[in-house]
Nucleic acid binder design. Structure first.
Length: 673
DNA sequence: ATGAGCTAGCTTTTT
DNA sequence: GCTAGCTCAT
């Protein structure tokens, strides 16, 4: 038997792995090897035949984390096990359960999963028909309230309103219409995936029993980020065997804006009797200096359990704290540092972590200029690009004829002379006759109620959809299907005819999509993936600097980390403080903690005095977090209000010099020749 | 029905 | 500085 993985664990990790029975809470500090513990625990359960792989439920928050865990488990178990079938995100596992019991939620098994974009379009449509002025009340706000209700586990009829919530009272009606509309469309939003499951478990104890009896062992990653409905979901699934193991770190709770309730974590032992608690406090990632800075910073939070991270590694280098004149200089400074680190470290092991994704732009421009390769993780999601959504919409219309949202999306793309008036007409007919937009269009054409020019366009689309559906039934492969659709719909031609850079990009993206489709056996599994995935897996091949938000960096680690833009208003973010006050500030501080603790070797924190933001130059102050860092562990340069505050002009010369001398700049000059 | 031209609001974080 | 969404002319 392959038991090596057990010897590589420390005393507490081993306890966490081997204590399989009963509720267990693992308080795991940053870099304490929690993924290792989780994967070893799964391996331990399987190897000791405590359960079959399909009797283990392992839940993560992101697809990335799920994939990582799947890989690591397979590695330990080698050939013995292909994978853990119930390892996935809350959303993907819920979708899997819901497909099997869709009827119990009033849905068909082939329901569509809609994203925020579609949600918003639906809300806007409802606002229009209910005569709600979207200028006075933002649809986004309505959506956030509905999401909040769903996170609390409320269907429209369950919503409890306080007297002072006058605005929300109006939203309740929208929620009702919205929810009915989703059922008519045979669709779910993200919140529904989990909510429907919980409601099904609640109303059908026999269904809940199937799963709770099956899942002998349940493991949950990032437990501090679960919300109310997710904790309820877990509660149902763990109710029979009660072998629930949750791993989390209260200091890394950064998703309260998405409804995460830290109290799930803090009160775990109150909900689950006889909970064992294991603390993992030995850090295997960072140097003493980095841990000291991170620990000192997070101590400023009142609301936390408190822990003492320690490491046996050496002091390492001091944390660089740099001040720049403006964002552009900051990008130059960072790229210069990258050039010098490059001699010893690979670009892949360097990362720039920002508060908001727009901050990456300045760095991109600089990197393009001097030729440093980079990749952006997160950001504009691949599957949210218009051309990709168009492709998916076409496929969905073929796959699920009730998918009106997709139909509406593609009915006039490319142009078929079907404008707003016609779409409105189709919608009204569909509403009156309780049918899908596609059927309504067909009937309207038959009745000759559509203007000649529009009729030709609309009719050709309807014919094509039927043809494609026929192709699909004949088991044409899904990649071929999309290619056929793109050609026959005129979509390809539309892109080819407009010869600008943007369109070439679009064509590239579609090629990438077709390529990504190869990984899936059929249309069905591809569409499921698309609904729940956000990005195509970025190639980690090649040497590139990584740019991403601090949120996206959770769970990752890098030798060199840059943390730019530590300025009041940007970080901590003004809106966060305005909306949530002190608790918002503490969450920002936890985010800073997450950022710093991604670092293995060298951390570089920086801020700039001046920044171009929303079309204006704004002066900025160093973040209050900068003052909270311990001086002993810092190496400062160019800080304001110190000896060098009078050589501003001199500094300008220095910046100029360094720019000319930077290796990237020289390379850039060479390329120009 | 469609494209050009203008304005207001915007950027926090994501399954 | 940018873009989604609106108005207006074709």
């Amino acid at each position: 038997m392959n038991n090596n993985y057990l010897y590589n664990l420390n005393k507490y990790q081993k306890i966490a792995v081997e204590n399989t029975e009963g509720p267990l809470l693992i308080v795991a500090g940053a870099g304490s090897g929690k993924t290792k513990v989780l994967t070893s625990r799964i391996a331990y359960i399987v190897e000791n035949k405590k359960a079959f792989p399909n009797q283990i439920l392992a839940v993560t928050f992101t697809n990335k984390a799920a994939k990582e865990m799947q890989n690591r488990v397979s590695k330990i178990l080698k050939k013995n096990v292909i994978g853990i079938p119930w390892l996935g995100t809350f959303h993907s596992i819920s979708a899997k359960i819901l497909r099997k019991h869709a009827k119990a939620a009033g849905l068909n098994f082939n329901f569509t999963i809609i994203d925020q974009d579609d949600q918003l379009r639906l809300i806007k449509n409802i606002c229009k028909s209910e005569n709600i002025d979207t200028k006075k009340i933002s649809p986004n706000y309505i959506l956030s309230v509905i999401d909040k209700w769903k996170n609390k586990g409320w269907y429209p009829n369950d919503v409890i309103l306080k007297k002072k919530d006058i605005l929300e009272k109006g939203f309740l009606n929208i929620y009702k219409i919205y929810q009915n509309k989703l059922i008519d469309l045979n669709a779910c939003d993200f919140g529904d995936l989990i909510l429907h499951c919980v409601k099904i478990f609640e109303k059908n104890s026999e269904i809940a029993e199937i799963y709770s009896k099956n899942f002998k062992y349940i493991l949950v990653d990032e437990y501090q980020d679960t919300n109310h409905i997710q904790s309820k979901w877990l509660n149902y699934l763990a109710s029979y065997h009660k072998n629930l193991c949750c791993v989390g770190d209260d200091d890394q709770s950064i998703y309260s804006w998405r409804g995460a309730e830290i109290k799930n974590f803090l009160e775990f032992d109150k909900i689950y009797k006889n909970t064992k608690i294991v603390r993992l406090e030995e850090n295997y990632r960072s140097t003493q200096n980095i841990l000291a800075v991170a620990s000192k910073l997070i101590k400023n939070n009142q609301n936390r359990v408190g822990k003492n991270l320690y490491t046996s590694s050496d002091n390492g280098e001091l944390i660089n704290l740099d001040c720049y004149r403006n964002g552009k200089d900051e990008a130059i400074g960072v790229s210069d540092r990258i050039e010098s680190y490059k001699k010893k470290y690979s670009l892949n092991s360097m990362s720039i972590l920002v508060r908001a994704i727009f901050q990456t732009r300045e760095f991109e421009e600089r990197f393009l200029k001097i030729g440093i390769p980079y990749r952006i993780i997160g950001g504009i999601k691949f599957y949210e690009r218009a051309e990709i959504k168009d492709c998916v919409a076409y496929l969905r219309v073929v796959f699920q004829s009730k998918d009106d949202l997709s139909f509406e999306r593609i009915v006039n793309v490319p142009r078929r002379s079907v404008g707003d008036t016609t779409i409105k007409q189709i919608n009204e007919f569909a509403k009156k006759n309780k049918c899908s937009l596609e059927v309504a269009s067909k009937k309207l054409i038959e009745k000759n109620l559509i203007k000649p020019k529009t009729k030709i366009g609309l009719n050709s689309l309807i014919q094509l959809i039927e043809k494609w559906r026929n192709d699909y039934l004949k088991k044409i492969n899904h990649i071929k299907l999309l290619q056929t659709i793109l050609d026959e719909s005129g979509y390809s031609e539309m892109l080819k005819n407009k010869k600008d850079l943007e369109n070439e990009n679009r064509i590239e993206n579609i090629k990438e999509l077709l390529n990504a489709m190869k990984e899936f056996d059929n249309l069905e599994s591809f569409l499921e993936h698309v609904a729940l995935a956000t990005s195509i897996d970025k190639d980690w091949e090649g040497q590139k600097v990584n740019l991403m938000t601090m949120h996206a960096s959770k769970g990752l680690e890098f030798d060199i980390v840059f943390l730019p833009g530590w300025e009041e208003g940007l970080f901590p973010n003004q809106k966060s403080i305005e909306e949530k006050g002190e608790s918002g500030l503490e969450e920002e501080r936890r985010l800073a903690y997450v950022g710093i603790t991604r670092t293995k070797k060298i951390a570089n924190i920086s801020f700039s005095m001046n920044r171009f933001y929303q079309g204006d130059w704004i002066d900025s102050l160093p973040s209050r977090f900068v003052d909270e860092l311990p001086n002993d562990n810092l190496k400062k340069s160019n800080l304001p209000n110190e000896e060098n505050n009078n050589d501003f002009d001199f500094n300008q010369d220095v910046e100029f010099e360094t720019e000319i001398k930077s290796p990237g700049w020289i390379r850039y000059q060479k390329r120009l020749k």
